[in-house]
Structure formats: structure tokens, C-alpha cells
């Protein structure tokens, strides 16, 4: 009997405790904060997280919009790695990344370092380098299409002055990808430069001063002090730049449409072709998943390389 009463007492006390805690939470600022957070969290879940998982589900199906998705196992993944065009899109994307990220990052860092000096026209030059970032990708592509035009282009005109024959920049299979890399680097230097400039402000001036007193020249100071101290920022730029290259659609759409010979057919263009061109949403989803895995792998490698060196 006593035992039973004891249980009831504990139960009532537990219930009171639960209600009391809920009441206190309801009256706290944390509840208001929770409600404020609820909206963006729900939006994030609905617009970002759910589509990722739905995409993963679609990658195992054949789905053409006009009939329900049909489970096909790993067939779409088999397509990604066995179809010549789809597999070439992976190679092209990796080539694009390998060509653009190191050069683009290094150039942005060097320019940021130069524009971090007290030189005349510094603000003007920073603005100039940043201008491509605020330009629409369509406008940029139109300008570069004219620059690259084989017959009437500025680039061939300039090359002609020094006796180099005209090149078919966007239609030559050996030049098309590198032509896109140049435009991509041109378009990204401004934003990467701003990030590097912010990072450079955090480097203690006394270290640079001490190096100078010890006889280090500007190049040594840059390579042996600035670059190592900037590793976290470089890591950030490398990762975000890599992601932006994987997502680079506008330039390809405007300039090459994946050609010539599929040499600029990147993964994102292949997704677009499969989804909107052929209505093969399952294949597009599978390529997206592979793309996600590659980006994650490249990010992890970047973290590892740059962090290890930082530790060393």
C-alpha cells in the first residue's frame, strides 16, 4: 500500500516537474528565440535538406516526370561511370578544378598582397578587380564571347599584333576548357581577393617587421610568413572556389554548351542535359550525388593538406 502511494506521489511530482519546466521554458527568452529559429530551420529543411535526400532517392529510380518514379537500383550510377559522355563530364570537371583553383587562388592572394601595400590608386585598383564579381554572368559571357571571337575578337587582334595566328578559342577542343578557366579566374579573383585582404589584416605587423629586420626580402616574407599564416583563409578560399567551379553553369551555357567534342561538358551541364533535355531525372540525380561526393572528398583533402601543414 505504502509502496503504491509512494509511486503515485512520484508520478504526481514528476508530472508537476515536467509542467513546471515547460511553463518556465514558455516564459523564457529561449522560447522566443526558439520560435524565431523555427522559421529558418523549417525553410532550410524544406528547401535544402529535404531536396538533398529526395535527390538521393531519385538517383535510384527512373523518373521522367509524367509517370511515378520506378526503382532501378544502381543502374543510374552504372550509367554515370560507363557512359562515355557522362564519365567525360567527371574528368572535365576535375580538369577544370585542377586548372582553375590553384592558379585562381594564387593569383588572388598575390593581388591581395600587392593591394595591401600603401600604393597610390589602391582603392581604385581594388574596385577594378572586384568589378567582375558584381557583373552578371550573362554580361560577362557576352563580353568574353566577343573577346574570344575567332574573326572579330580582341584577343586574336592582340595576338595578331605580335605575329601569332588567330585561334578558335571556344571551338578548338584543345583551347575551349582553358578559355573557360580564364573567364572563371577573371570572374572570381575579386571575391577571393577581398577574402584574402581581410585575412591579411589579421597578420601581426610585428612579425613581418621582425622578419624584415632579420634580413628577409619581400618575397621571402610573403612565402615564409604571410602564406603559412594565411592557411586557414587559403583553405576557405580553396573550398568555396572548388564548390563554385562545380556549380559553374552560366558560363558553359552561354559560351560553349558543353562543346566542342564534349570537352567543356562538365557534371553540372550533364545534369542539366539529362534533367531538362532528356527528362531523365534519375540520371541527373545520380550525377548530382557523385558530384556531391567528389566535392566532399576534395574538401576533406584540402582540409587535411592545409591543416597538416599548419600543424607541421
Amino acid at each position: 500500500m505504502n509502496h503504491a502511494v509512494g509511486k503515485a506521489t512520484v508520478a504526481v511530482a514528476g508530472s508537476v516537474d515536467w509542467r513546471d519546466r515547460l511553463y518556465r521554458f514558455y516564459n523564457s527568452q529561449a522560447f522566443v528565440a526558439f520560435l524565431f529559429l523555427l522559421v529558418p530551420v523549417l525553410l532550410l529543411a524544406a528547401l535544402k535538406i529535404w531536396p538533398v535526400f529526395y535527390n538521393l532517392y531519385l538517383s535510384f529510380t527512373r523518373y521522367e516526370l509524367f509517370e511515378p518514379p520506378r526503382f532501378v537500383g544502381l543502374k543510374n550510377y552504372n550509367y554515370v561511370f560507363s557512359n562515355k559522355t557522362a564519365f567525360q563530364s567527371i574528368i572535365n570537371t576535375l580538369l577544370f578544378t585542377i586548372e582553375a583553383v590553384p592558379i585562381g587562388t594564387a593569383l588572388a592572394l598575390i593581388i591581395a598582397k600587392l593591394l595591401d601595400q600603401s600604393i597610390r590608386g589602391r582603392v581604385f585598383l581594388r574596385t577594378l578587380y572586384y568589378l567582375p564579381v558584381v557583373s552578371s554572368v550573362v554580361v560577362s559571357a557576352m563580353i568574353w564571347r566577343w573577346i574570344y571571337s575567332p574573326q572579330h575578337g580582341l584577343l586574336n587582334y592582340l595576338l595578331g599584333i605580335v605575329g601569332i595566328p588567330p585561334q578558335n578559342w571556344l571551338n578548338d577542343p584543345n583551347l575551349a576548357l582553358i578559355s573557360l578557366v580564364i573567364v572563371t579566374i577573371w570572374g572570381s579573383i575579386g571575391s577571393n581577393m577581398v577574402i584574402f585582404l581581410a585575412g591579411l589584416q589579421d597578420i601581426p605587423k610585428d612579425i613581418l617587421e621582425a622578419a624584415r629586420v632579420d634580413g628577409a626580402n619581400p618575397v621571402q616574407s610573403f612565402l615564409l610568413i604571410t602564406v603559412p599564416l594565411m592557411r586557414p583563409v587559403i583553405l576557405f578560399v580553396v573550398v568555396t572556389f572548388t564548390i563554385s567551379i562545380f556549380r559553374n553553369f552560366g558560363l558553359i551555357f552561354m559560351l560553349t554548351q558543353g562543346g566542342p567534342f564534349n570537352r567543356t561538358n562538365t557534371m553540372v551541364w550533364e545534369v542539366y542535359q539529362n534533367v531538362f533535355g532528356y527528362l531523365r531525372l534519375g540520371r541527373g540525380a545520380a550525377i548530382s550525388v557523385v558530384m556531391l561526393v567528389i566535392v566532399l572528398a576534395l574538401t576533406l583533402i584540402s582540409f587535411r593538406v592545409l591543416r597538416e601543414r599548419q600543424g607541421a
Partner: peptide, 17 residues
């Protein structure tokens, strides 16, 4: 048809080049 056209477009480029 659009999906069928794509392989021939790529092969034409190679032959004509």
C-alpha cells in the same frame, strides 16, 4: 529525339574536324 541527336552531334564534330 533530343537525346538521340546528341551522340551524332558529337561525332559530327570529330569527323568534320
Amino acid at each position: 529525339l533530343i537525346a538521340l541527336f546528341r551522340p551524332i552531334a558529337a561525332e559530327l564534330e570529330q569527323a568534320l574536324s
